[in-house]
Amino acid sequence: MDVVLQILYIIVPAALIAATPLMLTAMGGLFSERSGVVNIGLEGLMVMGAFGGIIGTLMFEALGMGALSPWLGIGFAVIIGAIFSLIHAVASISFRADQIVSGVAINFLAVGLTVFIVREIYDAGQTATIGTRILRSNIPFLSDIPVIGPMLFSRVYLTTYIALIIIAVVWYVVFKTPFGLRLRAVGEHPMAADTMGIKVQRMRYIGVMLSGAFAGAGGSVYAVTIAGNFSAGTIVGQGFMALAALIFGKWTPFGAMGAAIFFGFAMALSTSAQQLPGFQNIPQVWFLILPYVLTILALAGFVGKAEPPKALNQPYTKGSR
């Protein structure tokens, strides 16, 4: 029993830490896709977020903000992400570009633009390392609870718990408010929504910009907690994994959260399985590909059918049938 607990004390926090950026970014994807706009560009938006997070933190550090800098950096990244996602919004909503192609272009553009700027500023492939990272800490009182305390509330990042609260808020907004109903209506049947006086294009712009804001938060949380600096290799695939979590979670906030945590476990196991009794003999590659294989199985209906919003990937033209 003790051995199992020891394993859980290592794996659970590691999984939660790996899952946090995915959860936040998946919430972004949820807003965009529920409004009917595919967002393959989550990866690029996360890159922008990581870049904004680091540059913002360095900037606020220089301004003398001290320990507050990384939090302000995250705020800065949220704004950068939302602005950058406007490109995807304009191309895919107003210009009726193919949403998937536009998303692919966003991914290219984000990496090119950020690394270009980093090279111009630092004359190297990476930024300076931030001085004031958000560090792992014990949550007061809760970390003293036996078993659960050391597992869930010791040596964790505060950002993880903020993310969990945000997910509850997202659920409330999307399923319990008029705004959420409109957002979903636009993604399921834009013409009906239009007939009811909902501004389809505007709702979709809001959806895509929220996806930029959330992906920006996800990317920056990864940058200011785990990475500490920014380079082309900071975000490699987390955005796509967040997209996978969104789909595996059937486009619902708590589903995506569960999927992200599950993927977090797979990632944590892939890096630490070698030290764990009972796991040594499983090749690492199985843990690495597990999230992707599961997503494919989920889509094929082997793990519960995942149904996308009906108007996903369809540009809306007023008056068309």
């Binding site: 490109i87 191309a91 107003s94 210009f95 009726r96 570009a97 193919d98 192609v101 536009s102 692919v104 272009a105 966003i106 290219f108 553009l109 990496v111 090119g112 633009l113 690394v115 270009f116 090279r119 111009e120």
Partner: peptide, 22 residues
């Protein structure tokens, strides 16, 4: 000039072709 400029140009060309409607 940092070589990533080329990536930016390629990304923009994709965006412009995809937005050919406008």
């Amino acid at each position: 000039v940092a070589p990533e400029l080329v990536e930016i140009i390629i990304a923009l060309i994709i965006l412009f072709v995809a937005s050919s409607y406008i």
